[in-house]
């Protein structure tokens, strides 16, 4: 197993983050740091990773478990390289989110919550992502894919497959310009 340790760059960022808050309040950095950890350690938070974060932040492990298990963006089980999160709420649902999900289930040959056998995709249905005006929509890593139809979904899956890269919320080279 890979040694659990932040890269030098991430470690510097983590240290900086903890200093953003008033004296003694560095626990505030926990959620941002968990995002960094999840991105760095294969897209999920194993107990070892959470213990490591606790030791870096000098807090109890249980405080990390409690927080990590509360928020739906933290994965406590391994996920595929691309976590496809399809909005299943109100407007998206009115405009065909279920068709998108069923289509993806068939195409990837997995059910919601499962990971494809090649470890490439995990399919998840999530609550409103604040993109209801461009429904239906889904998110992969940091990117929103909006106004979906089944062809667009197919094209996206092929592209992700050929790129073969892990997608995380944090990998954003530059803000996208409009």
């Amino acid at each position: 197993m890979k040694d659990i340790r932040f890269s030098e760059e991430s470690m510097a960022l983590v240290q900086r983050m903890m200093k953003r808050y008033p004296e003694g309040k560095h626990k505030s950095a926990l959620i941002p740091i968990l995002h960094i950890a999840q991105a760095e350690f294969d897209g999920w938070l194993s107990p070892e990773v959470m213990n490591y974060v606790a030791s870096v932040m000098n807090i109890q492990s249980i405080e990390v478990y409690e927080v990590a298990s509360f928020y739906s963006m933290f994965n406590l089980k391994p996920v595929g390289k691309c976590l496809i999160e399809v909005c299943r709420t109100s407007s998206c649902w009115l405009l065909g989110a279920e068709d998108v999900i069923r289509h993806l289930e068939k195409k990837l040959n997995i059910k919601v919550g499962e990971t494809s056998s090649d470890g490439m995709f995990t399919l998840k249905s999530v609550e409103c992502l604040g993109s209801c005006g461009t429904a239906p929509m889904l998110q992969v890593g940091a990117d929103y894919y909006e106004n979906l139809n089944l062809e667009k979904v197919d094209a996206l899956v092929s592209r992700l497959k050929s790129e073969g890269k892990r997608k995380t919320y944090t990998d954003l080279p530059e803000p996208r310009t409009l």
Partner: peptide, 10 residues
């Protein structure tokens, strides 16, 4: 001294 249990999930 030192809590090891807590509330998990939501």
């Amino acid at each position: 001294d030192g809590r090891v249990h807590g509330v998990l999930n939501r």
